[in-house]
Design a protein around this nucleic acid. Structure first.
Lengths: 168, 168
DNA sequence: TCAAGTCCGACTGAATCAGTCGCATATCTA
DNA sequence: TAGATATGCGACTGATTCAGTCGGACTTGA
């Protein structure tokens, strides 16, 4: 459980590839699909969602393809996942109580919601750029875009949020 | 996506209830189900898994029911989820490469695995006891069983900023 | 020994996921 | 201008997983 869907997986692979190679020219869905052994049509649908989500820009026509809409250092993994798979919630029942009939009875939702927030924050700190080269993460430590941080559960989170968030 | 199944949800609710009330006598699946409006048989199955997983002890017979196998302070949320829903993996393809045909091509797996580990650390730090009373978590801060967790992402430590999330 | 009460394993609809197909639209090149 | 190439979009199908139900096996207490 708690696993990402293949769609999100494919989406991240594509985004990472575009971050690495798509600097100049657009890359077509076909090329991406062939490069990673992903079904073309499936990937195309995912890329379309990313376009609608504002993370990619598409270019139609013969020399068309996809390009990142922003600097990869400003696109978080969380955004990609959220665009493809929808909002990620840890608890089965969403924020609204209306749909959950035992809202008043269910007493674990609140603590779990906090855990969910922690996970989201971890994912929001990781950018597409960070996926690029794992070995570079050491060097990235100094970079302002990826600063050290502390995770605390319960209702308190210590340490000032010095790090700038990737996009808000 | 990335949401817990209802089963895990029910399981956590039950564990929490047992941590609060099941000190002396065993509590039957029926009582638990009625208390939270959960289908009896569905809950029973979940409780059975928790027994097999070594987190609960079952007592058959007229006055039977379930009791926690260990101190609730020593049972992590991660354990409960893992017993009910199986090992939680962020990536679609598991650790073994055999089943994933584009193992060599998929380049995002390694960074995602680290994220997965971070999430697991967060969940393993949270115990059933911590779910008990959210208001007490402030006091629990001093308790040795619940020390501030540090989430490490790869070689760098990542921190969720407090307060609100980056909306996208 | 009987009966009440409980745990336990197999089974059946329902929902979601992964991938496919076909057609419309836009752009570039000859 | 016509053809080739590429994205954009909706509907569809098979497979997997989830949620919940049913009947049987076991233990306990009178």
């Amino acid at each position: 459980m708690l696993k990402l869907t293949k769609k999100a997986d494919y989406g991240l692979i594509a985004m990472k590839h575009l971050a690495e190679h798509g600097e100049q020219c657009a890359i077509s869905a076909k090329d991406l699909a062939e490069a990673y052994g992903i079904p073309q049509e499936a990937l195309a649908k995912i890329l379309q969602r990313l376009v609608r989500g504002g993370l990619l820009v598409s270019q139609q026509g013969t020399k068309g393809g996809y390009v990142l809409a922003r600097n990869p250092r400003l696109i978080s993994v969380l955004e990609v996942i959220r665009v493809i798979d929808g909002p990620l919630l840890l608890t089965a029942c969403s924020e609204g109580d209306a749909d959950c009939d035992h809202a008043t009875l269910c007493t674990v939702r609140e603590p779990l919601r906090k855990v969910s927030l922690s996970i989201q924050q971890v994912l929001s700190k990781l950018t597409i750029w960070d996926l690029r080269e794992p070995k570079l993460s050491e060097a990235e430590k100094q970079a302002p875009s990826f600063s050290p941080a502390l995770v605390k559960l319960g209702d308190t989170v210590v340490m000032p949020p010095q790090g700038d968030l990737p996009r808000s």
